[in-house]
Computed example of a mutant assay.
Amino acid sequence: MDIEILKCHGSGNDFLLIDEISNPYLFSEKQRADLAKALCNRETELGADGILFVLKSDVADARMRVFNADGSEASMCGNGLRCVARYVCELLGKPNALIETMKVNLLVEKEEDLFPEIPTYKVEISPVSFQLKDLPLTLPTDTLIAEKIPSLSEDLTFTALAVPNPHLVAIVEAEQLESNLQLQLSGYVNGPNPLFPDGVNVSFVKPLGKSAIFVRTFERGVGFTNACGTAMSASTLVTCLDGLNQKEEAIEVYNPGGKVRCVVHETNGQYKIDLIGNGTYVYKADVQVNEADYNQFTVNQTKVFTAETEQYAKLEAHAKEYIAQYM
C-alpha cells in the first residue's frame, strides 16, 4: 500500500495528514486505527500524535477525521484543525472554508501571521458544554465549575467541560506544575476509574503576564503533548470564568510547543472560542506500507519545508523566553 503523507504540526502537536480528496484511498475503519498505531509510533521514522484524514464532505468544503496514536478516534482536534484548514484552503484556493468534524461543522480562515512568516489560521472551537453527561463525568451534580474533587486532590479546584472533547482544567501555581501531580492525576482518570469512564484530557494552567497563560495538557489517547488545541481553548475559557482574563479580548496562550492566541465569545449564555495559531508543514513523503503488517513500512521524503521549520523554531525560542520570566 502506497500512501502520500504530509507531516505537519500546530504548536508542536504533530500529525500525519492523509488527503482522501485528491487520492482514491479506501481505508476501512480498522485500517485507519491500525495505520495510526503503526505510523505514529515514536520509535519509527515517522512518529506523530495522530493522523488527520481529510475527506470529501456532502455538507462542507471537507471533512476531518482524527485518529490518535493509540488508534482511538477523537471527536475534535484544534491544532489538527488548523493544519487541515491550511491544507483545504490552499487546495481549494480559498481564504476560508467550512470543515465537517465528528459533531459539528466549523469555520476556518486565514489570519494575519501570529509571528513573522508563520502561516496562521483561525478556527472555531465549539460547541461548549458544562454538562457532566457530555464528558461524561460521574458525580452527583450536573456541572463542575471551580470545585474540588476530593478523590483527585485536596488542594486543586477543577472545571469540567466538553468542547466537544472532554477536558478537566485546574489553575495552578508553578510548584504544582513542576511536580508529578498532573501525571499522577492523568494516569488515574485515563485508566479504570469511577469518575471518567471514557477518560479525559487534563490541563494545568499557570497565569503569566497580562492576558497571557501557560497550558500543559495530558491528552487522552496520547499522553503529554507539546500542545492540545481544544485544551488551550477550554483553559482560556476557564480563566475568563475565573476572572483572570476577559471575554472578547485576545489572550496569548503559551505551551511547551510554542504559543497560540484565543478569544472567547459569549452569545446568550453560549460560548465559542477562536483558536488562532500556526499550521506548519514539515515534509511530504511517500510511505510504502506492508499490508500484511502495518508496522513494516518504508519512508521516502519527497519535499522538506526547511524554511517553515526554521521560522517556527524562532517562535518557540520567543515563547520559551517569555515563559521563563514567570516560572
Rank of each mutant, 00 (worst) to 15 (best):
Y294P: 14
Y87C: 06
L106N: 10
R32N: 11
V263D: 14
A60T: 02
S211H: 07
A174C: 07
L132H: 02
E111P: 00
T309Y: 12
Y294Q: 03
P127Q: 08
P256Y: 04
G277F: 08
V59H: 02
H265R: 12
P194W: 02
V189Y: 00
K110L: 02
E124F: 13
P24W: 01
S129A: 01
G78H: 02
L137Y: 11
S11R: 10
D155A: 00
I3T: 15
L114Y: 09
A62K: 08
P197Q: 08
V172N: 09
E73K: 01
R216M: 01
V163I: 08
A85Y: 13
L156G: 10
R32I: 12
S28H: 08
M1S: 14
Q270Y: 12
N268A: 15
N201P: 10
K122S: 12
K148P: 01
A319F: 01
Y294V: 11
N295A: 03
T217D: 08
L17C: 09
S129R: 11
L98T: 10
E252D: 13
L139C: 02
E29F: 14
L39W: 01
Q270V: 13
A313E: 12
G47T: 09
A234M: 00
E316R: 12
L161Q: 07
L177Q: 09
H167F: 05
L315S: 04
K206G: 13
I323D: 03
V215G: 03
T157E: 03
I3N: 04
F158S: 11
G209T: 13
P192S: 07
E112L: 06
Q131N: 10
E20W: 08
K272Q: 15
V54Y: 11
I149L: 03
V205S: 09
P197Y: 02
F204N: 04
A62L: 03
N79Y: 03
A317W: 09
E154Q: 10
G229N: 03
V108W: 05
P140V: 06
Q131E: 10
L98E: 13
S186W: 05
K37S: 12
L156W: 05
M232G: 12
G71P: 14
P164A: 13
S75N: 11
A97E: 07
L107T: 06
D2L: 07
L208D: 11
V253P: 13
L46F: 12
P194L: 00
R42M: 08
L275H: 11
S11M: 04
F224Q: 13
S211P: 09
A285P: 01
D142A: 12
N193K: 05
C89W: 00
S151L: 05
E266L: 09
V59P: 02
S186H: 05
G199K: 06
V189L: 02
A313I: 00
K133M: 14
F224I: 08
I213T: 00
C262R: 13
G209E: 14
L244Y: 15
D2P: 15
I18W: 04
L132I: 04
E124W: 14
V282T: 04
Y87D: 02
Q296L: 04
P150Q: 06
Y294A: 05
L137C: 12
I273E: 06
